[in-house]
């Protein structure tokens, strides 16, 4: 019995103010980028039209595509580390009592209360050339020269994982807590060992949460600009950094737009992959 009530349609009026805002601040900017990406940029003059120059350039200049794949690789690495660190925490949250769960939850989300820049500053103070770790190691006489802990991929991955781990734990916990305890107990009563219960029951059933968390972290990581700049110096370059450089230093809007669209396409592909995996798991 499907209830189609015309009264309900009127509720959609409530969406009008926000839709109006979105048109100006979201849809028009995106369309503008799309149009710009097909425009021609010659000696600082932009000509609107349908040119494939920018795409041709970013796909063939060798450097943009390489940095794009570096960004993807970095994002995949960040996602993997978030999953490996986040899953046990989510599992523990499910096992403990409600009070302990609340405390863990508070600790997990507490970094969200601080800005990315603050968290990055904290890492600079810890990992920097004269940061805490190097300071301590040198004063203990364990090393004589500071270790290169940042201005490399290690520092960037570490800091971004720190920033996005919360976004992994929350969907994982949601998925894990929706698994009925009795399923695992049933498996145990049939004689399954803890490890095989985990791989045969818990892990497959939490796959929707894993996919949700990984998709979210991957998308966020693809767009990350600040952390590579602060933690990577100029040694780790990501696509967002190229975009920023193209616009702010070279005023080359068409090329920046094309790179932005490349980023969106990568994210779109990731969303399609994850949703098709989820569909496949369901069936």
């Amino acid at each position: 019995m499907e209830k189609i009530d015309n009264n309900k349609i009127s509720s959609w009026w409530l969406l009008v103010p926000t839709s109006f805002l979105y048109i100006i601040t979201f849809f028009i900017p995106l369309i503008t980028l799309l149009v710009m990406s097909f425009s021609r940029f010659e000696s600082s003059v932009t000509t609107v039209g349908f040119y494939l120059d920018n795409y041709e350039k970013i796909l063939t200049d060798g450097i943009t595509l390489k940095i794009f794949f570096q960004t993807v690789e970095l994002s995949l690495m960040i996602t993997l580390f978030c999953l490996l660190l986040g899953y046990p925490v989510a599992m523990l949250m499910r096992r403990v009592g409600p009070k302990a769960r609340l405390w863990i939850l508070l600790l997990v989300v507490s970094p969200l209360l601080t800005s990315i820049i603050v968290r990055n500053v904290a890492w600079v103070l810890i990992l920097g050339r004269s940061g805490m770790i190097n300071d301590l190691l040198i004063s203990w006489g364990l090393i004589s020269k500071p270790l290169p802990l940042m201005y490399n991929a290690f520092g960037v991955v570490l800091a971004v994982v720190h920033v996005y781990l919360s976004f992994m734990v929350l969907p994982l916990f949601a998925a894990l807590s929706s698994i009925n305890n009795s399923l695992e107990e049933a498996a145990a009563s049939l004689g399954a060992k803890p490890l095989s219960i985990f791989f045969n029951v818990t892990l497959p059933l939490s796959l929707p949460g894993i996919m949700a968390g990984c998709t979210l972290v991957f998308i966020l990581s693809m767009g990350v600009y600040l952390t590579p700049v602060i933690m990577g110096g100029n040694f780790v370059v990501t696509l967002p950094m190229l975009i920023e450089d193209a616009v702010r230093n070279r005023y080359n809007w068409p090329e920046a737009s094309a790179m932005a669209l490349l980023l969106l396409v990568a994210i779109g592909i990731m969303i399609v992959i994850s949703s098709s995996i989820q569909k496949w798991v369901k069936s």
Binding site: Y22, F26, L33, L216, L220, M222, G223, P240, I243
Partner: peptide, 17 residues
């Protein structure tokens, strides 16, 4: 959907507007 749009892309578009 603005949630999953990288802020760099949104920032770029908004700057233009």
């Amino acid at each position: 959907s603005p949630m999953v749009l990288p802020h760099i892309v949104l920032g770029l578009g908004l700057f233009k507007i």
